[in-house]
Amino acid sequence: MSVARLGLRLGLGFLYLPIVLLVAYAFSADRIPFQWGGFSLRWFRALAEDERLVEAALLSLRVAAGAATLAVLVGGLAGFALARFGPFRGRALFGALIGAPLVLPEVVTGLSLLLLFVALEGAIGWPAGRGALTVLLAHATLGAAYVAVVVQARLAEADRSLEEAALNLGATPFVAFRTVTLPLMAPSLFAGWLLAFTLSLDDVVLASFVSGPAGTTLPMVLFSRLKLGLTPEVNALGAVIVAVAAAALGLAALVLARVDARRGGG
């Protein structure tokens, strides 16, 4: 075996061995989470019966879907404006502000969002208290930054003259946007949605800042449980998450590959 191959295997092992171990121990019958006790599905059963976990998981999925959708709306429009509105006044500032959540430490973003939500509630009574809604808004803020970047990059490489051709053929600006620009943006909107969805699904820091009693997401529950010690149930949960993530990634790759094939890869 050559050195390069050995290196590759070590690297892959370093990346994936922990995950493989986690998935394997999820099927172990033993109560101690790192001791093999024979094959069993008992922890998956326990997982399904753990109402608190299931509830948190469902809440996480709802929050992630909502946040991703909001992020696509806001970030998509921002990316479009940055790529297509020309050098408008304040463009550089706008671009910097949109991208800020990408570079700001999450604790700073989380703290400032918390302050904003508290101040808003004091001023206009919305959002009332902190919970799923505030977590959703916080995640949408972060996701919008990613979506804006992806959409802007995609439109920057797409030819401006396509929209001009549409106008030339009698399409009003809105119709040109709907029939030409939007289809051009679609793959980046889809990719951006998935990105925002996964970001929301595994975020602990932002959620910890802006969540309330009714807004405990799955990562938060997991995190608090780990403080009390490892249980095989957590292994099972991890295995489920790995399966879901793999399925989502596979789907995304499939859709993007089809889009690319349609566009001829260019």
Binding site: S161, E164, R262
Partner: peptide, 9 residues
């Protein structure tokens, strides 16, 4: 248009 600007989709 010079590059034809055909709609790729």
């Amino acid at each position: 248009f010079q590059n034809y600007a055909l709609f790729p989709h």
